[in-house]
Design a protein around this nucleic acid. Sequence first.
DNA 1: ACCTGAACACCGTTCAAGT
DNA 2: ACCTGAACACCGTTCAAGT
Lengths: 200, 200
Amino acid sequence: MTVLDAEGLDAVTMRRIATDLGTGPASLYAHVADKDELVAALLDRVISEVPLPERIEPERWQDQLRQLIIDGRAAFGRHRDIARASMGFIPTGQHALVASNMMLGIMLEGGVEPRVAAYAIDILALYMTAYAYEDSLENAPSKTHTEDFHEQLQAFFTALPADRLPYLVAMAEPLTGGDGNERFEFGLDLLIRGIASTVK
Amino acid sequence: MTVLDAEGLDAVTMRRIATDLGTGPASLYAHVADKDELVAALLDRVISEVPLPERIEPERWQDQLRQLIIDGRAAFGRHRDIARASMGFIPTGQHALVASNMMLGIMLEGGVEPRVAAYAIDILALYMTAYAYEDSLENAPSKTHTEDFHEQLQAFFTALPADRLPYLVAMAEPLTGGDGNERFEFGLDLLIRGIASTVK
DNA sequence: ACCTGAACACCGTTCAAGT
DNA sequence: ACCTGAACACCGTTCAAGT
């Protein structure tokens, strides 16, 4: 975790961890089956930082769901590009399972159909994870301040050939502008509204 | 592309491509700045396979958007785990830009607000890519048929402690069951419904 | 401009041997 | 059960030298 927070996920190698622990890479295999298992353990510890609601309040299901996703992004945000390790598969660590169970509970008690809840949980987790990963790319090392990143991106879109890509050029501002938090919560509300629209 | 389709993205290494081309790894650097550039080129060629609507039909914006995402997933599905290379960053290849421009156009002409369209395009691309990547995991090598995968997954959820994770256990069936296409399109419709709900 | 051999600085994992 | 040194079979990239 120390290596991850200091230098990012690429620095988390079996050899590096072993060296920091004053031993050789082979020693780690007495505690962990392979590197994937080590990273999975790291990931579950990050997920353990996500605060969960004390109790499910059915009438506030949208708020509770929303807050959980926001807190999840924040937890990932505290640990560099760990989100990358979480993309494309369903985390099955102890804390991940508890969090998933809570999300499902919030939706089900809120009146969301089981089938909708089952699909929604995948989409929500996906959205949170992918956004957290994008955050980590923007906060990447070599960049000094975030303004440059957005300016560069906007300049890229503006410089595209307007005759062939008219919509992209016209949309340079909304595509790149806006506060990161605002963008994230706007998209999140879009998703939750989609789920809510299935509840009678 | 031949290596990708035959053995997956992990087999696409500079050394492997060089060997197949009858040369050494250093030679590739005369044509490509680094490995990322090679993979980006591969990715853009996959995206070039996505059929785009001949013309935008504003009154059919939801259908056209839906079909584009479905065709995108299909294109990714034809090329192993290439979706992995597309996750977490916005592809900026020529064909990716044309496709993005088309998606934006479909939404804007359909009456979607610019700001909503700008956020929606990220979410839709994300959903498609992440789903395609999950598909590629299910169709992974060692598995013989897909039934085993779902049965294993369902068995995993059912075996969890029902006292601590009641919702997960109760939802084992909807969480793992259902046809892959059906699940994908159900989630997609959820997203498009969320976007449509912002159009007056 | 394009290509090459050889090297550099890394990886994850295994395995026989030790305590 | 836990640890070790040494090795195996790989990586991406650089660099001086060639055509």
